[in-house]
Amino acid sequence: GKMTGIVKWFNADKGFAFITPDDGSKDVFVHFSAIQNDGYKSLDEGQKVSFTIESGAKGPAAGNVTSL
């Protein structure tokens, strides 16, 4: 299901971020390909987002990341 959280930090050079979920679970890795914005895919620290949890090769990662 959809979860919500806050972007903890975003590394534009490497194209990934971490989200701190609102439910208090541990921070979730985000690859820029999961960001659903049109055009430039970036996130801002402190931004509120919704996302799903996908199981990636290196463990859980956020999918369908959308700005709220």
Rank of each mutant, 00 (worst) to 15 (best):
D22T: 06
K8C: 13
K26R: 09
Y40F: 10
A62F: 07
A12T: 08
A34L: 13
E45T: 10
D38T: 07
K26H: 09
S55D: 15
K2C: 14
K8Q: 07
T4P: 01
T4S: 06
A17M: 08
G46V: 02
D38G: 09
K26E: 09
S33M: 05
L43E: 01
G39E: 08
L68M: 09
H31K: 14
P60D: 14
L68D: 15
T4M: 05
N64M: 08
F10D: 01
I35M: 06
V28F: 10
I53F: 10
G1K: 10
T4A: 04
K41E: 11
F51Y: 11
A62S: 11
Y40R: 05
W9V: 05
A62C: 15
V65P: 05
E45H: 10
K14D: 05
K8D: 01
F16S: 02
W9N: 04
Q36N: 11
K14T: 05
S42M: 10
M3F: 07
Q36A: 12
K48G: 04
G59I: 10
S33I: 07
D44P: 06
G63R: 00
E54G: 04
A62T: 10
A34F: 14
T66F: 00
A57I: 15
N37H: 09
M3I: 09
N64C: 15
S67R: 01
T20Q: 09
G24F: 03
N11L: 07
T66N: 14
S33P: 04
F29A: 08
T66H: 14
D13C: 15
G56S: 08
G56Y: 09
V28C: 13
D22P: 01
S42D: 11
D13A: 09
D23V: 04
A62L: 09
G15W: 06
F51N: 00
P60A: 04
G39W: 07
K14Y: 07
K8S: 06
A61S: 12
G63Q: 11
A34C: 15
G63T: 12
H31Y: 14
A61V: 14
V49R: 00
I35L: 10
V49L: 02
E45W: 08
W9M: 05
V65I: 10
F18A: 10
T4I: 05
S55N: 09
I53G: 05
F16H: 08
K8L: 11
M3V: 09
K58H: 15
F29D: 01
P21S: 02
K58L: 15
N11D: 10
S50D: 06
G63L: 09
T20S: 10
D23K: 03
K48E: 07
L43P: 04
M3N: 05
F29N: 02
V49M: 01
F51D: 00
G59K: 11
N37P: 12
Y40C: 15
G39K: 06
A61P: 11
F18H: 07
S67A: 09
A17I: 06
